[in-house]
Design a protein around this nucleic acid. Structure first.
Lengths: 115, 115
DNA sequence: GTCCTATTTAACCAAGCGGTTGACAGCGGC
DNA sequence: GCCGCTGTCAACCGCTTGGTTAAATAGGAC
């Protein structure tokens, strides 16, 4: 893990291929070949993606004969979730306002003149 | 917003400077000069960071005379939170196991032989 | 108009990223 | 030992990123 784990995690997640790999790993362990199968991409490319995910602490890898299965690292995303949690109140509040507005419309007050 | 909003958001968040800017904007609107003040960085650099955040839908900007104040876009992070939510059960489960293990230790069963 | 402040644009640069191909290493089967 | 499979390493390439400086734009004050 680098000096700034949070940046590493966000950066790792900023790629659709890597997010798809994570989604696939929710179903259980997988080899590099398994993971590469859905993508139009060479094996070394997938291997690099796995290394990024591993360095970010989002997956871990085992060794069974010539296979190096990858698995989800369950606590990996917790740091991201904790960071996000500080901001939850902003979109919650915003959603509440939107919700109130929609209820106002239903009452036949589309301009929100009531407030 | 680009073709892949989620990637744009994660990518925008993968920079400590930009996360610090978001944190600062929690306290309210701020001008580019305000935002640049804590950083050892030129103004155009901050301006670029703001553009990244804006394109990711995490902030929006106004126009008041020659100032272009930035403010938090409340719903901006919701997409990220929704994506993360799918994975919550993984770290929750992991935490529960850790919790159970700690309780086991307290009971004087450090090797977890009970299970 | 002229000056001052706030901010963006343009051009540039070094470093990193995402991909490729080709060679190499680990391991089981024969 | 040798083949075949799985995976990584190394070198390379084009594009993006995060920063710089210098010049341009926008708007208020005078």
């Amino acid at each position: 893990m680098p000096a700034d784990p949070l940046s590493a995690k966000f950066s790792a997640l900023a790629d659709p291929t890597r997010r798809a790999i994570l989604a696939r790993l929710c179903e259980g362990e997988a080899t590099v070949n398994d993971l590469a199968e859905p993508f139009d991409m060479s094996l070394p490319a997938v291997s690099k993606h796995l290394k990024v995910l591993e360095k970010a602490g989002l997956i871990s890898r085992g060794r069974e004969a010539q296979w190096r299965p990858a698995r989800l690292e369950p606590m990996g995303l917790k740091g991201v979730a904790d960071w996000l949690e500080h901001y939850r109140r902003y979109w919650d509040a915003s959603f509440d306002r939107l919700d109130a507005y929609l209820k106002q419309i239903q009452k036949g007050d589309p301009d929100g003149r009531e407030h």
